[in-house]
Amino acid sequence: MSGKIRPIEKFARAVAQCSTETDIGVPQAASYGKCVVADYNAVYKDMCAKEFMKLKDCYLAAAKKR
């Protein structure tokens, strides 16, 4: 195990870039989080699909950079 980076760690690092990045305004993770939390008593499938796709794009871009 030691020495090798677990896939989940790589994933976590890439995701972290999307929840703390501030040079482009509100981070994607925060806008998705706000969208879900805004009405968390009545969440349904794909309620925040648009925000999620932006977040996922951000994550994919961050994952590619490494």
Partner: peptide
């Protein structure tokens, strides 16, 4: 789901 969970947990 993990990606979504991270964002929601942080927000809440």
């Amino acid at each position: 789901v993990l990606l979504a969970n991270e964002a929601i947990y942080r927000e809440l």
